[in-house]
């Protein structure tokens, strides 16, 4: 059975930071802009203390909310 489309996400691999994840998931974008985009879609991670720390179990969205994406 096919699932309906859901907001895409990933999780960090050991040692990965924002730039690594951006490079892996948004490879066709400018690296700096890709990191900014990733952080803007994941404020639940980017705004927590210490700022931007990513934990192994975190859900990291790789696109904006579907309602906003249209």
């Amino acid at each position: 059975m096919e699932l309906s489309r859901a907001r895409s996400f990933t999780t960090a691999r050991p040692g990965e930071e924002w730039a690594d994840i951006a490079r892996r998931t948004l490879a066709d974008q400018d690296p700096g802009q890709a990191v900014e985009a990733l952080q803007s879609w994941n404020l639940h991670l980017f705004l927590r203390q210490p700022r931007g720390r990513i934990l192994g179990c975190d859900v990291i969205f790789t696109e904006p909310p579907l309602t906003d994406a249209g």
Binding site: T11, A12, P14, G56, C57, D58
Partner: peptide, 24 residues
């Protein structure tokens, strides 16, 4: 049991939250 949200007495993530997908 595991947790993706809880913090410990130092208000730091509990150990389970440091687990990557491979571990889970």
């Amino acid at each position: 049991s595991t947790s993706f949200v809880d913090v410990d007495e130092r208000l730091q993530p509990v150990p389970s939250r440091y687990a990557h997908a491979e571990e889970i």
